[in-house]
Design a protein around this nucleic acid. Structure first.
Lengths: 120, 120
DNA sequence: TCCTGGTTACAAAATAGTGCGTAATTTACA
DNA sequence: TGTAAATTACGCACTATTTTGTAACCAGGA
């Protein structure tokens, strides 16, 4: 089951946004235009292969724009598209939610679990 | 580099939400309380093992609540916590963004790419 | 024996990292 | 003047690591 076309927008966004790198790259590109080598320097734990793959994925998804200039040495710029920019606050909202989420999974039950049992 | 503690909330949410199942489960539990076996029936492509793993991950993250009743046959209910419910609209927003994102990655450049080159 | 909700061990599959190759021009240097 | 070396953004093949699936096992009562 490789590429199941989902027709569900949420499933599709998540396919693009899942993983460590997409949101990270989003943030590196949020305010600036960056080059491939800039992004690599920005975080060394991201291999050039992954960077290339992720950048392409985000480009195809219309989140970032790739601008290649002719001549050598090569030169390619990356920045967010208008859509990409609109995505940023949504991701921020997730971050805020995470920070402010209550620990209500540990609270004194509101669902009459009189016969509640501690997990196996 | 196994479990890098990120201190970045966005990185942390994405670690929980990444993959096919988290958001799907969120939707199955959005309005109803479900049992393990319900969720399995709801979508057969999710293996028994993965369901157990994902449910635990979401529980630890405070997104869903697990309620186990004593006695056999076993009986365990799952539903969203208050935090989990608050997460739903944020995920919806992502879905909306995806559906309405413009194809501006293909538009007539607004960034003077006079010497633009088609990608390799 | 079946039921439910797991867990574990092992195998298979998907995903990520490493290192080499490449292109066209400039600079380095003898 | 000729040539070797560096530069940048990848693609590719091979390997390492991680994730996921499969199947078997458990508990204890009906």
């Amino acid at each position: 089951m490789k590429d199941v076309v989902s027709n569900c927008p949420i499933e599709e966004v998540m396919r693009v946004l899942s993983g460590r790198w997409p949101t990270l790259l989003l943030y590196y590109l949020k305010d600036d235009t960056k080059r491939f080598s800039d992004l690599r320097r920005d975080n060394p734990t991201l291999s050039h292969r992954m960077l290339a793959l992720e950048l392409r994925k985000l480009e195809v998804a219309g989140i970032i724009r790739r601008t290649a200039y002719p001549g050598y040495p090569l030169r390619v710029d990356y920045d967010l598209t208008a859509s990409g920019l609109r995505l940023v606050p949504l991701i921020d909202a997730l971050g805020d939610w995470w920070e402010n989420r209550t620990g209500d999974h540990a609270d004194p039950a509101e669902k009459t679990p009189e016969q509640l049992v501690s997990a196996a």
